[in-house]
Write a protein that binds this DNA or RNA. Structure first.
Lengths: 149, 149
DNA sequence: TTTTGTGCAAACGTTTTGCAATTAT
DNA sequence: ATAATTGCAAAACGTTTGCACAAAA
C-alpha cells in the first residue's frame, strides 16, 4: 500500500477532531478527486469508485461530496452544460475554462485573480468565502474540429 | 401603455431578422428580467408573469430563457445553492456576489475583470464566449444576523 | 394559409431522503 | 456497546419533451 498524502492525513485528523468518522468511502472520494484534474461529477466519482467499492451508493457519494465541500477540501463548479454539478479539488483560487462543446474543464491561474479578489473584498461589504470563476468557450481541440466542419 | 425600451425594440427587430416571431410571452420575459436586479430563476420568472399571463407555461418560460441566452440578451448564473438556475439580464461582464445564507445576488463591476478576461484569452488558447464570475459569502445584512446569533 | 409558438401533462435525470443494516470507535 | 455511516429504494425536484391547439405573419 502507498503512503497517504499529507492532505489525506490531515483530512482524517480533521474528521476525528470534528467527531466524525474516517471511513474508506470518504477517503476514497477525496483520494479520487485529488488524483484527477478532470473535475468529475458525482456520477463520475461514483463510476470511478464503484469498481473498487462494489457496494458504494450514490447517497454516500453525495454525502461525502457535501462533507468535503463543507470542510473546504473541494469546491463546486456547478453545472457546466451537461446537467451535472462538477467538483474541483483545486481549492487555490483559479479560473476554470469550460469547453461548451466537449465539456472539458481546464484550470488556469492568473495574477489578476488576486487583484480581483482583493477588490471584491474591499468594495463589496461581503465576507467572501469562496469563488467560482468560469469562462465558457471553445477549447483548442474543439476549435480545430469546428474549422473542419 | 408605456414606450418599449430600446432593448425591447431591438429584440423584436432581431426576432424578425431571424425569422422568429414576436410573442407577448417573449417580450414579457425579457421585460421582466430587465425590470429587476434580483437575478430570478425560471420559477421566479414564471410566478412573476403568471399573474398577468394566466395561461403561461413553464415550457414557454424555459424556451424563452434559452432563446434569450442564445441571442445574448441574458446570461445564466447557474445554481447558486438553491438548486435552481438563475438568470442575469446584465450582460456587461461583472462579478456576482452570492450570499450563501439569503441567496441574494449583487452585481459588482471591477476594472480587474477586464485584465483577467484579456489574460485568459491570451494565455489559454480558448475562444472565450462567455464568463460567469461568482463570489460566495455573507452579504452585509446576513453578517449582522450572524453576529446576533 | 402556413408555419411558428404555446400550453399541457407526462417524462427525464440528477439529487435527496428515510430507514434498516453495517461499521468505526 | 453505541452512535455515526452506509446502502438501498423510493421520492422529490428542476427541467425537458411530445403533441394538439392557438396565434403570428
Amino acid at each position: 500500500m502507498t503512503t497517504p498524502s499529507p492532505r489525506l492525513v490531515e483530512f482524517n485528523q480533521n474528521l476525528h477532531a470534528m467527531g466524525l468518522r474516517n471511513t474508506p468511502q470518504r477517503t476514497a472520494v477525496l483520494e479520487y478527486l485529488d488524483s484527477t484534474d478532470t473535475h468529475p461529477s458525482a456520477a463520475e466519482v461514483y463510476s470511478a469508485l464503484k469498481q473498487r467499492y462494489p457496494g458504494l451508493s450514490f447517497a454516500t457519494v453525495y454525502n461525502t461530496l457535501d462533507l468535503l465541500v463543507g470542510m473546504g477540501y473541494i469546491s463546486v463548479l456547478g453545472d457546466i452544460g451537461d446537467n451535472q454539478a462538477h467538483f474541483d479539488s483545486n481549492i487555490v483560487p483559479h479560473a476554470n475554462l469550460v469547453c461548451v462543446r466537449c465539456h472539458s474543464i481546464t484550470d488556469i491561474h492568473s495574477p489578476h485573480l488576486e487583484n480581483l479578489g482583493t477588490f471584491i473584498t474591499q468594495e463589496s461589504g461581503f465576507e467572501v468565502v469562496n469563488s467560482r470563476i468560469l469562462y465558457y468557450g471553445l477549447c483548442p481541440v474543439c476549435q480545430q474540429k469546428t474549422k473542419n466542419t
